[in-house]
Computed example of a mutant assay.
Amino acid sequence: MSHHDKPIITVLTAPGEPEPPGIDAIRARGEVRLAWDEETLRESLPGTRVMMVTDFRTDALEAAWSTADRLEWIHATSAGVDALMFPALIESDVKVTNARGIFDRSIAEYVLCTMLMFIKDFPRSMRLQAGHKWKHRDTERAEGREVLVVGAGSIGHQIARLARSIGMNPHGIARHARTDDEDFIAVHANEQLFEKLEVADFVVIAAPLTPQTEGLFDSKAFAAMKDSARLINIGRGPIVNTDDLIKALNKGEIAGAALDVFEEEPLPEDHPLWDMGNVILTPHMSGDFIGWRRALTDQFLDNFDRWHKGEELFNNVNKKLGYAGS
């Protein structure tokens, strides 16, 4: 490919969303077309060789897919690619990469924060402070607590590293067991999930949404957990059956939950989770550090340089599995 041949790059954003910061650096390397729905995609996809997707209501992409005549590579500016995985794309030769790595540390800091908030009873302290009530309590210690990270990918490793740094014992769950992991005490195979749930003080969901993980945390999983355990979900909302979670919290089957993702987003204003004292809620923001949008563009540009030179891309997603990695 000659350097005079400026490839066409389509950037799919949400309607009304501003252009990604740093897009001028992309314009310097190719012809940039912007799309935000099926109609604009149908106009921009013919001739497009590369896509950068910042919006994941992908029914538009699936609907306009037949117009993608030269597409070679789609880059998703998120770690989770579940919303992109429609059959025609999975079956195609189009490569998919993701934003693995950008949000790992930030999400791990969020998880550490929520674990410590539970351990030191901070949500209650903040409620008492709001009510001007002085109420001394004894609280828990983090040291020696068992943490089970479901999904031992790059985010899971950062969570384990930070948990370990304050004396907690992190174990992982992944497709294959590993004993030689530097961050986890051990990584166990998926089949061992339930026996590991029985001993965990904190269960952290850091798995991608796949047909195997959808609805994985249901009444059966909560019944297996210790009644003193807390659930933290920074993965995807549908991995947890929300109705079963609410029942488990109300029955005291588990002690609390910190949730950044939900089956329905935004969470409806009248949803029972808002008013539960043992639940910490955030609006899908655990990874979003100040400056993350520009960091995503820079990561895309690094990979674009490799594509332009005909080199192997990094963060290749295994489309059959639905995530980057083996």
Rank of each mutant, 00 (worst) to 15 (best):
H3L: 08
P170F: 00
V94H: 01
S78N: 09
F289G: 12
K120Y: 08
G256M: 07
H132W: 01
A63G: 13
D288R: 01
N315S: 03
K220C: 07
T58P: 03
F304K: 07
I155S: 06
G291R: 01
E182H: 14
H188P: 08
T179N: 07
R306E: 05
T179H: 05
K133S: 12
P170R: 03
R164T: 15
R294P: 13
A163S: 10
A88W: 04
L231W: 00
N250D: 08
F56N: 10
I280K: 01
W73C: 10
P123R: 02
P272M: 14
K226A: 03
E39G: 14
E43C: 13
T139F: 08
A186Y: 05
A207H: 06
R294E: 12
E17W: 10
P266C: 07
R137K: 15
T48V: 03
R70S: 14
H75M: 07
A229N: 02
M1R: 00
L61C: 12
F118L: 13
S228Y: 00
G101Q: 12
E62T: 04
G237A: 11
A295R: 04
A25Q: 06
F262Y: 08
P7C: 12
A248M: 12
E195D: 14
I173D: 03
G215F: 01
R164D: 15
P272V: 08
G287I: 00
I290P: 14
E31N: 10
